[in-house]
Computed example of a mutant assay.
Amino acid sequence: MKKFTKFLMAFLCMGIVFASCNKNDFDYEKAEREQIEKARLEKLRIDSLKKDQAPILREYALTKWGDKAKFSDSTGIWYTVELATGNETPYAYKGTVNSFGQAGLTAWSATLNFKGELMNGTVFDKNTDGVPKVYDHIGTALNVYGQAWLYAFIPTIINVQGKDVRYDGLLPKGLQKNDKISFISPSYYTFDQLEYTKGSEKVTVPKNTPVVYTIELKTIGNSGSN
C-alpha cells in the first residue's frame, strides 16, 4: 500500500508539472505540499474507517465461518479459503518495474464464478448461473469491485526481477485454479464513497458499506492485453 501511495503521489505531481509547464509563476513546492496534505487526510480517513469497521467485520467472519475464518492484519480483510488439490505447477504472478523505479504487477486473465453480497446475505452481483465470468484483463474486474479483489488474487510476496516485493495478498501462492475464497472487506477496498447500483441483481450497495465476495477460480493465465 505504501508503494502504491508513493507511485500515485509521483504520478499526480508529474501531472501538475506537465499541465503547468507554460506557467513561469507556478509554485511547485506549494503543489507538492497540497498533494502531501491530501494524502495525509486520505490516510486519516481510511484509518478511521478501518477502526470503526474492524469489530463489525470480525463479528461477521467468526459468526459465518467460525474456526475457518482467517484475518489479514495488513488489509483488515477477513476470509476463508478452500484450496484445490493438484496444483503442482501453480500460476506464477509476475511483476515489473516502471519508469519511476516502482515495482508493479503484470495483469492476468481469469475465468471465474463469483458472488457479491451485503452483510445480511442479500446478493447484489454475480455471474450468470452456469456461465462463468471471463476477464481477459483482471483490471476490468478491479476497476468495478475494488482493491479487495486484488488482495484475494495475488500472493503475499511476488518476485519482481529477482527481488521479493511484499504486496499483502491473502494467500502465500495467490489464488489458483479451482481455489474458492470468500472474504469480507472494509469499504475502502471495495466501493468506498461510491454507491454501487450496476450489479446483476439490481440491488444498491450504499457507500461506505463493507461487502462480502466469493470467488471460485476456474482458469487463470497471462493477459493478452497487458
Rank of each mutant, 00 (worst) to 15 (best):
L41E: 10
Y28I: 09
E37D: 15
L49R: 11
N22E: 14
L44P: 02
R58D: 05
A39F: 06
L41A: 09
S48E: 08
K43N: 11
R40H: 12
L44I: 04
D27T: 03
Y28N: 03
D25P: 03
K23Y: 11
P55W: 02
I46K: 04
C21V: 13
A31C: 05
Y28A: 14
D47R: 10
R33V: 08
I36C: 03
E32F: 12
S48I: 00
E29K: 15
K50R: 10
C21D: 07
E29A: 15
E34H: 09
I56N: 03
D52P: 02
Q35M: 13
A54T: 00
E32T: 11
Q35F: 06
Y28V: 11
E42C: 04
I56Q: 03
R45F: 04
E32Y: 12
K38Q: 13
K50P: 00
L41P: 00
K43H: 05
E42Q: 09
A39I: 11
K38S: 09
E42A: 06
E32A: 11
D47P: 06
I46H: 02
L44S: 02
E32Q: 13
K51W: 04
E37C: 13
K30E: 11
E32D: 10
F26N: 03
A31M: 07
R58Y: 00
A54I: 00
R33P: 01
L44Y: 02
K38M: 06
E34N: 14
D25S: 15
D27C: 06
P55R: 02
L49S: 08
K30G: 07
E42S: 03
C21L: 09
R58T: 05
F26Y: 08
K38N: 12
L41R: 10
I56T: 08
D52Y: 05
K23V: 12
K30V: 05
N22R: 13
P55E: 01
K23F: 11
R40K: 14
D27I: 05
R45N: 07
K23M: 11
L49P: 05
N22L: 15
A31R: 06
L41M: 12
A31T: 05
D47W: 01
D25K: 12
I46Q: 04
A31E: 12
R45Y: 07
N22C: 14
E32M: 13
N22K: 11
I36W: 02
A31P: 04
D52W: 00
D25R: 09
A31D: 06
I46A: 00
I56R: 10
R33W: 04
E37L: 13
N24S: 13
S48R: 05
E42Y: 03
D47I: 03
I36T: 10
K23D: 14
Q35K: 12
Y28M: 11
C21A: 13
D27V: 05
K51T: 01
A31F: 06
E37H: 15
L41V: 01
Q53R: 01
E37V: 11
I46N: 04
S48G: 05
R58G: 00
I56F: 01
I36H: 09
R40L: 11
K43V: 07
E34I: 08
D47T: 05
K51H: 00
E34W: 08
K51P: 01
K30H: 09
N24W: 05
S48D: 08
L41Q: 13
R33Q: 14
D25N: 15
P55S: 01
L57V: 01
E34D: 15
K43S: 13
N22W: 11
E32H: 10
A39C: 07
D52A: 15
K50M: 00
Y28C: 08
A39T: 09
